[in-house]
Simulated assay, not measured.
Amino acid sequence: DTRTPPVGIVPEDNVIVELCSIECCFSHPLETCLAERSTTVMKFSTAIKEWAKICKNLYVGDYTTDFSNYLAPFPNFNVIRQNARFFAENNVKGLFEQGTYDTLSGEFAELRSYLLSKLLWDPYMTEEDYNTYMCKFLQAYYGAGWRNILSYINLMIKTTEDSHIFIYDNVLKIYPCEDVRYDRNNKPQIPDEAYADVENHDWLQYSKKLRHFENSFIEAAEIYWQAAFELCDSDEAKAHLEKLSIQLLACKSAFLGFVKDQGLPWTELQFFIKDKRLEIIDETKKQLDAVIYENNKKLYDLLIKYNITKICEWTALPSNPNLYNEVTAWNQ
């Protein structure tokens, strides 16, 4: 255990002590959330406070992405400001924010890098200033439909606010599917049109009412993305939105792979493929494979187009992927 400060020893002034937050939850502030993957060492926030009492050069290695899936959205935008302030208030002199360090990102790397750079300059910024920086970036980067992307980010946060999220979590642990028990006669209907603003739809309550394998997070996210794209006012912003769609395709890839593993009937997938129905239920797997391949081919082509060479920390983008598997299993 090197996290717990020693008793009776004080580091010299030329000694740097670095702690890392690798075991921590990243959907809640580090200072107040005690959920960690390890239970054998002093809690990270406690260790920071204790080391700050005896060390003049305290550094932190912090983490800002899901290392098991670089492509999927990581819902930490509500905590990085609070974490930066916590570090500054506890004598942290050096802060290394590690994201997708070995490839370009398919996720919100541009936005997150911008916000983190602002926080490194001013870790005491107010929530209002932080939100202003976020909105200005979204408007400049994604164009006229940027408010829909902000709503999508808020959806990410709302969906995961009651869950502890770690940096090696499967995407379906972060954005879980609903289960298979449901009443077909009382199934809520999803609007086909893309709304410019769907805040009035309680998607979380909707997902609780569903009792079959669907993923209301993906559905709502796609509506936001489509609305943003339809309002797009420049080719540059369209390219940025196209790249952003990688994270939705990656989530859908994980979901479809899960559905395939569960052997669910085709009718449970109708929201992904409007106006297509099976005439013969025995063809379910064949049809499902076609949907999986179509989604994954689109995802793979975008990864190549935007020069994204890693799927996760330990898996490079294969040159000949198995597009019938979910994205993190393309090399199998």
Rank of each mutant, 00 (worst) to 15 (best):
T4V: 11
T4E: 09
P5D: 01
P6W: 05
P6R: 15
P6D: 10
P6A: 07
P11Q: 11
D13C: 06
L19R: 00
E23S: 13
H28A: 06
E31C: 07
T32H: 06
T32F: 02
A35P: 01
R37K: 14
S38A: 09
T40P: 00
M42Y: 10
S45A: 15
T46I: 13
E50N: 10
I54D: 03
L58Q: 04
D62F: 05
P73D: 08
P73I: 10
P73G: 04
P75K: 12
P75A: 06
V79C: 01
I80T: 08
R85A: 07
N91K: 13
K93L: 06
E97I: 14
T100R: 07
L104D: 04
E110C: 07
L111D: 10
L111R: 06
R112Q: 10
Y114W: 03
Y114M: 13
L119K: 00
L120Q: 11
P123C: 02
Y124V: 01
E128W: 01
Y130A: 08
C135Y: 04
K136A: 09
F137H: 15
A140P: 01
G143Q: 05
G143H: 12
G145D: 13
W146D: 02
L150E: 08
N154G: 07
T160H: 00
S163V: 10
I167Y: 00
V171P: 15
C177T: 13
E178T: 15
E178W: 02
D179H: 15
V180H: 12
Y182I: 06
D183K: 11
K187H: 07
D192H: 15
A196T: 13
E199Q: 14
Q205M: 09
Y206Q: 07
K209N: 05
H212A: 02
E219Y: 15
I223D: 08
Y224M: 08
F229N: 14
C232L: 02
D235T: 14
E236C: 07
A237H: 10
K243G: 02
L244R: 11
I246G: 01
L248N: 02
A250P: 11
F255I: 10
G263N: 07
P265R: 04
T267G: 08
Q270E: 05
D275P: 01
D275Q: 06
R277W: 03
K285G: 03
L288A: 08
N295H: 04
N295C: 13
L299F: 11
D301C: 12
L302E: 09
N307D: 14
T309I: 06
K310Q: 10
I311R: 01
E313Q: 11
Y324C: 03
V327S: 01
A329R: 13
